[in-house]
Nucleic acid binder design. Structure first.
Lengths: 142, 142
DNA sequence: TCCTATTAGATTGTATACAATCTAATAGTA
DNA sequence: TACTATTAGATTGTATACAATCTAATAGGA
């Protein structure tokens, strides 16, 4: 008999478990750089576009200032970035990579490839899965 | 030019975001029961099989005692379960639903259906996505 | 039986997530 | 211009995750 109150049946649990599983895979590659997964994705955004506000970073990662403020301060303490009060609008903080932060990009460049190698998944399946997830995210905003 | 250090390219971020997105969808349905998503999935396991150890629950959810111990104590404080030291092996704790915990199953019975309704996704797509995720989890253990 | 290894769960410490609230700055408007 | 609303980011409080360590109990030999 089909019971929707079964853990095994619920999509959410599969998403939750998959996310934790893959984030765990990043750990051995991020530990040497002394950063966490969330810090890593912040840096990914900054490596793409430097000098953005906390708000813009938050929109990109779908995280709020409650999560980002302490995290950015930790990256600042490690010397990877600076927090600069904007001149034009003093409510805003501009996050700016330091030399060290820019250099870190080079050290992190092989991580995506290493992750793909460490995952037991075909590239085509990974792409298909990612497309389906992005479709899901797109259709379920907020 | 394809850059693997782009956030948008990485499967992990899609998983991470999808998981947070769908867990957020549970909140309006779980808030009235005064439980969180993680507490809910613990109860899902117990509603399926009562009187299990912390270890067995942990294996089912892939969570360790560091996460589960405080969480189970909160559910105990709310009166949904009892923690009973096993007679045969005093290292083990048996988690046992109370009347209140059993009654909660009835109150939670419509949640899966409500979630499906609230998600903008076709059932067939949800099933396909879930199958792919479960395949991914199965192939990437630990 | 005695000793060592293992195991179950608890505890500690760090790092998110996220709701709710707060503060200071800016925008919008009468 | 004076007033109100909005906005950016910080702060507070709660609840995970998870590594590392600790403790007590059991298992498995010599």
């Amino acid at each position: 008999m089909f019971d929707p109150l079964k853990l095994d049946v619920q999509l959410c649990f599969s998403l939750y478990t998959s996310a934790r599983t893959i984030i765990r895979k990043y750990k051995p590659f991020l530990d040497p750089l002394n950063i966490t997964y969330t810090q890593y994705i912040c840096l990914l955004v900054l490596w793409e576009k430097d000098m953005i506000s906390v708000k813009e970073l938050g929109e990109r990662l779908m995280l709020d200032s409650g999560t980002l403020t302490p995290l950015i301060k930790k990256l600042e303490k490690q010397g990877y970035l600076k927090r600069v009060r904007s001149q034009s609008d003093e409510r805003m903080i501009s996050i700016e990579l330091t030399e060290l932060g820019i250099e870190l990009k080079e050290k992190a460049k092989d991580i995506p490839e290493s992750i793909v190698q460490s995952l037991n998944i075909e590239i085509s399946d990974a792409i298909e899965l990612k497309n389906r997830l992005d479709d899901f995210i797109r259709k379920n905003p907020e």
